[in-house]
Computed example of a mutant assay.
Amino acid sequence: MVREIVVYPDKRLKLISKEVESFNGALHDLLDDMYETMRARNGVGLAAIQVGIDLRALIINIPLEDTDGEHDQPKENTLEMINPVIIEKDGSEKFQEGCLSIPGIYEEVERAKHVKVEYCDRDGHKHTIEDNDFLAIAIQHEMDHLDGKVFIEKLSYMKRKKFEKEWKRRLKEA
């Protein structure tokens, strides 16, 4: 089921998400709905809080390009991370980011180039993943949501002011 996306400046985006304690059918349904919602909005990642659920759960599915140049995100390629914790990070890289909760805005954000993360899958089994590419950026972006942060908070003061002005104008026009 496609759920509604929580859009900035909704106060729920400031919530610090709670640890997942039950790896049950309700969690599985939430993860499945998050996948459908992310696909419907052409996203590459989604945190549970973005659909109004304050649990430490996120998904990432980086599109694969097929032989026809089409992009696909098969469900089996979805990385589901429950209660993720960054245990190592280093380096620095700037990357243009966007967010389903702040549609139409893209800005350069600086993040760690390399991350190593421990997390649980939907059944509660522990895993570790390490990356120094786009996946590392996506993980950090989605994990920020779990801590009540959105990517525009990482912008310089001037860029943030410009964003706020532009966003208010857009909301008035909507």
Rank of each mutant, 00 (worst) to 15 (best):
M1I: 08
M1Y: 09
V2E: 12
R3S: 10
R3T: 11
E4S: 11
I5Q: 01
I5W: 01
V6Q: 05
V6A: 07
V7F: 14
D10F: 07
D10K: 12
R12M: 08
R12G: 04
R12F: 03
L13A: 03
K14N: 11
L15C: 12
I16L: 10
S17D: 07
S17R: 06
K18N: 14
K18S: 13
E19D: 13
V20T: 10
S22D: 14
S22L: 14
S22W: 14
F23E: 04
F23S: 07
N24L: 12
A26K: 15
L27N: 12
L27Q: 13
L27A: 13
H28Q: 15
L31M: 14
L31N: 06
L31S: 07
M34K: 11
M34R: 10
T37R: 03
T37F: 01
T37Y: 00
M38C: 10
R39Q: 14
A40E: 12
A40T: 02
R41I: 14
G43W: 00
V44H: 00
L46G: 07
I49G: 03
I49E: 02
Q50E: 06
V51E: 03
V51P: 02
I53P: 00
I53V: 15
D54N: 15
L55E: 11
L55T: 07
A57M: 06
A57L: 06
N61W: 01
I62N: 00
P63E: 03
D68C: 11
G69W: 13
E70M: 13
H71F: 15
D72E: 15
Q73I: 07
Q73Y: 09
P74R: 03
P74S: 07
T78V: 12
L79I: 10
E80N: 13
M81N: 06
I82Y: 02
I82G: 02
P84K: 08
V85W: 03
V85D: 03
I87D: 10
I87Q: 09
E88A: 14
G91P: 08
K94Y: 09
F95C: 10
Q96V: 14
E97L: 01
E97I: 00
L100S: 02
P103R: 00
P103N: 01
I105R: 00
I105T: 05
E107C: 08
V109N: 02
E110M: 01
E110C: 01
R111H: 09
A112L: 11
K113M: 07
K113P: 05
E118Q: 15
D121L: 08
D121E: 06
H125N: 14
K126S: 09
I129F: 08
N132M: 13
L135V: 05
A136L: 05
I137P: 03
Q140A: 04
H141S: 03
E142A: 04
E142Y: 01
D144A: 08
L146G: 04
L146A: 04
L146I: 02
D147Q: 10
D147G: 08
G148F: 13
G148P: 05
K149C: 12
K149L: 15
V150F: 01
V150H: 00
E153G: 15
K154V: 07
K154S: 12
K154D: 09
L155Y: 01
L155N: 02
L155C: 06
M158R: 10
R160A: 03
K161P: 00
K165N: 08
W167A: 04
W167V: 05
W167P: 01
W167N: 09
R169C: 02
R170S: 05
L171H: 09
